[in-house]
Amino acid sequence: MRSYTISARRDDENGSLAGVREAVVTLDTSLAGRRDALNPVELLLASLAACMIKGIERSAPMLKFGFSGVTVSLSAERQDAPPKLTAISYELIVDTTESDRRLELLHTNVRKYGTISNTLADSVSLSGSIRRG
């Protein structure tokens, strides 16, 4: 069993900071919003994107899957009352010359072994596709 810790603190009414090890992320916790920071939903989507990219990095050597780049586009649907996300969709774009069958195998591995994607899939509709870039 692994555990993770992170700490965050409010700087002022305009924002907050989160950090772990030597990494620091500026958080948009301002009621007015900030253009230079991610809000909580965007952070969640960024976490999912990082999980998927890391999943590709982890799966590719085991599958002997060749690729040169990955892009993830995500969107989320939010309801107001009660406030929650109801759906997340994504598109994984992989720069590769691998076959469609192998591309789908990579997608299966990313979905099956992703900590964040598995966690989110248990609480919100998570759907997406993979394609060649």
Rank of each mutant, 00 (worst) to 15 (best):
A23R: 05
N109R: 13
L31T: 10
S16N: 05
K54E: 12
S123N: 13
L85I: 02
G133S: 13
N39R: 13
I130Q: 02
N39M: 07
K84M: 08
E104N: 12
V24W: 10
V124P: 05
S127I: 11
D100L: 08
A50K: 01
E104Y: 09
R132A: 13
L44E: 06
R131L: 05
A87R: 05
L106F: 13
V70F: 06
S127T: 15
R132E: 05
T5S: 15
M1T: 02
A46R: 09
I93C: 12
M52T: 09
T71Y: 04
A46P: 02
V41G: 02
R9E: 13
S129M: 05
A37P: 11
K64F: 07
S16P: 12
T97P: 02
A121Y: 08
D100A: 11
S47A: 12
R58Y: 04
V70N: 06
T26P: 10
S68Y: 03
I88F: 00
V70R: 04
S99K: 10
T119N: 12
K64E: 14
G19F: 10
S117V: 06
R131P: 04
A37R: 06
I56V: 14
S75D: 08
M62T: 00
E57D: 14
L27G: 01
L43K: 04
D28H: 11
L85C: 09
R9K: 11
D11W: 04
V24N: 04
A49G: 15
E98K: 09
L17D: 14
D36W: 11
T5A: 10
S127R: 14
P83M: 00
D12T: 00
R9L: 08
A49V: 11
I6W: 06
S117C: 11
V94I: 10
A49F: 05
T29F: 02
L27E: 03
